[in-house]
């Protein structure tokens, strides 16, 4: 990090959230077609296509993406590679903040027999690509900067444990497919039980060159970065997702597993992104 940027980051950390007024959060979708949180002229059966687009990368052996009474239900079970599965905002460019109640009901991550072969992870997350820190190249995610707040299960967790971890991350893509990333910020936000609901918020505070993360009523956490943030990202996309990232194990090992079964509801966004 260059000295100037570091100093700027420290300054913004010191000022915290008081330096600039951010857009207020407003309801985006409560996943209740009987009583939608924002007005609709027509009744929607199921998920609202005006608000959400299906999104999936990688492969999986089982998946569920459905409206479950008054929640979004996402489930993914994968045995290889990496991928995400969920719903993307239909207007990602206007979305600078996302909040939702998230409940990772069940998650299991199984890696290779030899721990050094790599860690398997499974997550439920609010995430997106917010800007490009370099020179935008069409079709390439290189230098796109992603931020996420997620509930994560890792293969290094104690077997049979019901404990998961909430984390906030900011990362910069290092290649066109964003297969490798450079972490700009990582913060542990504490443990959560499987099946325990947690309210997560993530907000891009561009004016202060940082992301604001918050879990439930805990204090806000600021993820400052020291990269340029004025370019629109090459790969626009923000949404609610379950993800898996699995190591490649020796053929003699059992197949790795990335399993996440999660619910999301009461989604809020920054006011200008409201439908």
């Amino acid at each position: 990090m260059r000295a100037k940027n570091l100093g700027y980051a420290l300054l913004t950390l010191a000022l915290g959230g008081t330096a600039h007024a951010l857009e207020p959060m407003v309801p985006y979708d409560n996943f209740n077609p009987m009583r939608p949180s924002t007005g609709r002229t027509v009744k929607i059966r199921g998920l609202d296509p005006a608000r959400w687009a299906n999104e999936q990368t990688g492969t999986r052996v089982e998946s569920v993406r459905e409206l479950a009474f008054t929640r979004l239900h996402l489930k993914s079970r994968a045995t290889a590679g990496a991928g995400r599965y969920g719903l993307a905002f239909t207007n990602p460019a206007r979305v600078t903040a996302i909040e939702a109640k998230v409940r990772l009901n069940n998650a299991r991550s199984l890696g290779c027999l030899a721990p050094q072969a790599g860690t398997a992870t499974s997550m439920a997350e609010l995430s997106g690509t917010f800007f490009n820190a370099g020179t935008v190249t069409a079709g390439s995610a290189k230098d796109d900067v992603t931020a996420a707040i997620h509930v994560v299960s890792r293969s290094t967790d104690i077997p049979g444990s019901q404990e998961l971890r909430v984390e906030a991350t900011v990362a910069q893509c290092l290649d066109a497919a964003c297969a490798t990333r450079s972490a700009l910020f990582t913060q542990d936000l504490g443990m959560v039980h499987q099946g325990e609901q947690t309210r997560l918020r993530m907000q891009w505070d561009a004016a202060n060159h940082r992301f604001i993360f918050q879990r439930d009523e805990q204090a806000e956490v600021y993820g400052a970065y020291a990269v340029a943030d004025v370019q629109t990202p090459s790969q626009q996309g923000k949404g609610l997702r379950v993800t898996h990232e699995l190591p490649t194990c020796p053929a003699s090992d059992p197949a790795p597993l990335g399993y996440a079964n999660a619910y999301f509801h009461d989604v809020l966004v920054n006011k200008s992104a409201a439908p």
């Binding site: 209740n32 077609p33 009987m34 009583r35 009744k43 059966r45 199921g46 409206l67 009474f69 008054t70």
Partner: peptide
């Protein structure tokens, strides 16, 4: 019984 929507609450 409400048959209006596939999900949701409540009439």
């Amino acid at each position: 019984t409400d048959l209006e929507t596939a999900s949701g609450c409540c009439a």
